[in-house]
């Protein structure tokens, strides 16, 4: 048993603590500056969204009641009291942008949540079982991907008699799953040929157990990347729908709604669209940077 003792020592030299594959990915992510900027922006976005009531100095939906019914605060440029200025109704644009982060993030997360459930379920079943089920699911994916994303979203929103943010969740969720399903399907198809899947089968593991415990954990990396990029896409789509009047409805402070109301004043009061526009740009850019960084960090072939 001398060899065994030697082996143990060898292992000790390799590592003092356990290194999960996630730990390694985090180390790679930390080295990527752009990804860290993305992570920073995303974190700020999250904090702003969660603590909106604390951060925002004014009510985002209603202007303060002014004596004598005068709307003195209407259409003010940026100032110390109103860093982003006020809109026509005298509402503080800074507060509205802060609350807008809430809506945007909620849209991003909820739609991607729906997409995750649909995409993983359909993709995993198609990839694992193959055959007719696979052909049916693949066909459905093709059909969904054949429509331009925003046009499809408009079409679905048009079905509802009254647009609103809750319908945006549903519409975007229903059309965001195909790319995810396609990726999961491909991953499952390659992973199911791995020897450890065969090992699990020889142990008597059920299909459900194999998919949940072996296949999905090993395809998490591309899923995470797709979902992250999907959040950014959904934020952009919501802004687009709201701008067209088919998404979030006023007085809810969605960034898209703010752009829509601001466009009337684009010549005289351009600051009204600067700030929501910048917010959309920075949020989407930040999340995309994070997504790209995650892709590099999670890809095991990129090991340096």
């Amino acid at each position: 048993m001398k060899a065994q003792v030697e082996e143990e020592q060898e292992i000790k030299q390799i590592s003092e603590e356990a290194h999960s594959p996630w730990h390694e990915a985090w180390k790679r992510l930390k080295k990527n500056k752009l990804a860290m900027i993305g992570l920073g922006i995303t974190t700020v976005l999250l904090i702003v969204a969660i603590f909106a009531p604390i951060i925002a100095p004014y009510n985002p939906r209603y202007a303060p009641v002014i004596e004598d019914g005068k709307v003195e605060l209407s259409l003010q440029g940026p100032s110390w009291a109103h860093p982003f200025g006020t809109d026509k109704l005298g509402r503080d644009i800074f507060s509205r942008v802060v609350y807008g982060a809430r809506i945007s993030l909620m849209v991003g997360l909820i739609t991607q949540g729906i997409a995750l459930v649909l995409g993983i379920t359909l993709g995993a079943i198609a990839g694992y079982y193959g055959g007719l089920i696979d052909e049916a699911v693949s066909y459905l994916i093709q059909v969904f991907l054949a429509f331009p994303f925003i046009l499809f979203a408009i079409a679905i929103m048009a079905v509802f008699s009254e647009p609103g943010v809750d319908k945006v969740f549903l519409a975007l969720g229903l059309i965001s799953w195909p790319p995810l399903a396609r990726i999961v399907r491909g991953q499952v198809m390659s992973i199911k040929e791995e020897e450890y899947i065969e090992a699990a089968q020889s142990l008597g593991a059920s299909d459900f157990r194999i998919i949940v415990k072996h296949v999905i954990p090993n395809s998490l990396a591309p899923i995470i990347v797709t979902v992250t990029l999907g959040v950014a896409g959904a934020i952009l789509a919501e802004a687009g729908l709201s701008f067209l009047g088919l998404g979030t409805q006023p007085p809810r402070p969605s960034w898209g709604v703010m752009l829509k109301t601001g466009q009337e004043y684009i010549r005289s009061y351009p600051y009204m669209i600067w700030f929501p526009g910048l917010a959309i740009m920075i949020a989407v850019m930040g999340i995309n940077l994070l997504g790209d960084g995650l892709r590099d960090a999670l890809d095991p072939k990129m090991k340096d």
């Binding site: 020897e195 072996h214 998490l220």
Partner: peptide, 15 residues
């Protein structure tokens, strides 16, 4: 039961 050929491929890397 079965013991597999490739000890690198037959263990789930995430477990």
């Amino acid at each position: 039961q079965m013991i597999f050929q490739d000890p690198y491929a037959s263990l789930n890397p995430r477990m």
